[in-house]
Design a protein around this nucleic acid. Structure first.
Lengths: 337, 337
DNA sequence: CTGAAAGCGCTTACAG
DNA sequence: CTGAAAGCGCTTACAG
């Protein structure tokens, strides 16, 4: 079924042992340069391909990393995590590892079913991309493989996490809005739903406090229900002059809603997002937002998990990656009253 | 490093042989039901996990399928193929297989470097997602593993392909436009760049011919260069009343351009897309388009490749999956003159 | 510098 | 119904 040239075949052809072939092909000591060359040439000629499986078996290592994305983050339009997966996949390849994507279904999450790639020992570790439920996190602790959380963290879990700097990102962009003369600034997001949103809210809050702007409860607008589904937003009676949204998609939704109600962005009010994903440039006007450094986050996660595979004792704690503000057209300077 | 409970451990605990354990755990004949039960219970107790690697080694099968996506189809916004990858990944899992994503870089494509997952024998077959260059297709033929093309095909290659029904999709949607009273209908797309675009163009053409509408060369508008980069489009002197775009993103670009030039869609002219991806709903107005049946395409590709792994002789030829028109707001009925 | 032996964890005949 | 032997393709000590 396959070509199946093995080291032994090469050895026989040359009248040496397979041990020698193994050494030569792996550039190990103990074979004369002459023979080494000859072996390599013959291997090439015979179309030899290295059999990773055999090595894996011997070493008890699969050279695969499972990447788990909860189903709810993979809607048709939610390209953000799939994009990040792509970066992870590339980063892992640098280390000779490969990513196996596993979409965690809502059902399996609820029933606490561990991924089959774990049960079948297909992977050496996991990157969990996107917040999963607390109970499932608990359950995952029973898996005796290293794990890295990506783009979220859990306060109770001592699992390493790579996150975007939500707090300072939101802080910075709120500062920018304030610098444009705004004082009535709302935050849009369900602050109880994920750690990222909560941190973004707190960054927003810090900016307000620093500028002696009194935060008001009516200025926090809920955008989604417990299950993460987006809901119609209730705008405050007195319209704020600016909205800090917890992500670009919500900013997009908000702008649509504002338009429907007859408001113009940014003339009547400014709106900023977070993530710099598809929505940022497809919204009219294009969004001023915080760009998340996907490459670096993916790179870190890959590096960490591979180090942890080699040395499970290793820990990194919570590592946050700086984002940066992308200035576009959704914010307008206003005269301070 | 791992828990490493093996069949032998279970066997020793029970005073039987590992052969018996293997049989019991795999529900094979030749073990009394009684013993079978006992073995399963003990396995559970000891936290035994099946070692796929060992099985793979024995059988010479990896249970992995490589999914190759050319780099140029994975831009930040190009979620379409990543989405399809996700569906493939799910479909494969049904068969006990896993997908390994490999992004084919422009460099590797040009240099004709085969993917490392092939060289290292990490996979049993390939799904190639998105048109790759002719030379690379030739090169890939040297890989002695089954392959399935997904979302494109190559006339010279006798490789099985799963495609969306581009021809009839474009034909149907053009018919719809004609039924809305349009006669001046342009096609937008570089008809030399991919087989899909070409087929969509031909579907458009068939509809025109059937309705005795004389096709004009000026009515074919180029949207991208040889490398697939989008370019500014040249609108014809006399504006057609409708545009059939080869995909949603292009439709989106076109609408932006029309807006800039002071035209209103659909009042001044109608525009339709193809794919029903992110752009379809994010464009204003939302696009009438042809929805590609991603699930079914992914499902077919997965099924085919796995059958071919089991039986390399098997061929499927070119299988096209029907799409369907999604009616939205970008087409307006006009009075026939 | 070269190689025989043992083993990674499982399964497939085959023998009892 | 149960199990000893051999083998999948490689590598790791160890011996010569």
């Amino acid at each position: 079924m396959k070509n199946n040239v093995t080291m032994r075949d090469i050895a026989e052809r040359l009248g040496v042992s397979s041990v020698t072939v193994s050494k030569a092909l792996n550039d190990k000591e103990g074979v004369s340069d002459d023979l080494k060359q000859k072996i390599k040439t013959v291997a090439e000629e015979m179309g030899y391909r290295y059999n990773t499986l055999a090595k894996s078996m011997k070493e008890g290592v699969t050279y695969n990393i499972g990447v788990i994305i909860p189903e709810r983050f993979t809607g048709a339009v939610q390209s953000f995590y799939l994009n990040m997966y792509q970066s992870i996949s590339r980063a892992l390849e640098q280390y000779g590892y490969y990513g196996i994507l596993h979409i965690l279904t809502n059902y399996d999450e609820k029933e606490l079913n561990l991924p089959r790639i774990y049960v079948e020992q297909k992977v050496d570790g996991f990157i969990i991309l996107g917040q999963v439920g607390k109970k499932y996190i608990e359950k995952m602790k029973s898996m005796d493989l290293p794990k890295v959380f990506l783009d979220f963290y859990d306060e109770h879990a001592e699992i390493d996490a790579v996150i975007t700097d939500n707090f300072y990102g939101a802080y910075d962009i709120t500062n920018y809005i304030v610098s444009q003369g705004h004082r009535d600034i709302a935050f849009v997001g369900n602050i109880y739903s994920t750690s990222s949103i909560q941190d973004r809210f707190l960054g927003y809050l810090k900016s307000l406090l620093e500028h002696k702007i009194r935060p008001e409860e009516s200025m926090v607008i809920n955008d989604r229900d417990e299950e993460g589904r987006y809901i119609e937003m209730k705008l405050p009676e007195r319209l704020p002059t600016a909205f800090v949204c917890n992500n670009d998609q919500v900013a997009h939704n908000l702008i649509q809603q504002l338009k429907r109600e007859g408001y113009n962005v940014p003339d009547d009010c400014s709106v900023v997002g977070f993530d710099n994903d598809v929505y940022a440039t497809l919204t009219e006007p294009q969004l001023t937002t915080v760009e998340v450094n996907v490459e670096e986050m993916a790179g870190n996660a890959a590096e960490f998990i591979i180090e942890k595979v080699k040395n499970p004792i290793k820990t990194y704690g919570r590592v946050s990656v700086k984002g940066k503000i992308i200035y576009r057209d959704s914010v307008k300077e206003i005269k301070t009253r």
